[in-house]
Design a protein around this nucleic acid. Structure first.
Length: 111
DNA sequence: GTGCTGACACAGG
DNA sequence: ACCTGTGCCAGCA
């Protein structure tokens, strides 16, 4: 059993957290990708799980489908990405976004 | 049971 | 690249 996580967590939430925790450095997954991989719920449900218990997993590796960072933690996330070597793609002048073409990852899909 | 809200995704302007 | 509207699903008043 996974220690450190609240027992109140539903099986779905536990599964989401497990997937997020399995994301290797330099890689990311979108909310929709996780939901689609699990085959249940939806992006919003994944977002809910992260909002509640995301503090126990690498939340910065879970971003929007377009590669944009988590609002309110952009600075923190960017620092993590640069440290982990996550494929970033500079915007026109200011701001960065994760290059989903490279950074997108799936548990069973090992390159 | 009904309605609103939310760490989203997608299409259109 | 940005903002707005609509759709999806689960939790809560």
């Amino acid at each position: 059993m996974t220690a450190g996580r609240p027992a109140q967590v539903t099986e779905f939430a536990d599964r989401v957290l497990d997937v997020v925790d399995a994301i290797p450095p330099g890689r990311v997954m979108s909310y929709g990708d996780i939901a689609e991989y699990l085959g249940q719920g939806g992006p919003r449900q994944v977002g809910r799980v992260m909002a509640l218990w995301g503090g126990g997993v690498p939340w910065w590796r879970v971003i929007h489908a377009d590669g944009s960072f988590l609002a309110g933690h952009e600075r923190e996330a960017l620092a993590r990405y640069q440290r982990e070597g996550t494929p970033l793609r500079p915007l026109g002048g200011a701001g960065y976004r994760v290059d989903m073409r490279q950074a997108r990852w799936a548990p069973a899909a090992s390159p």
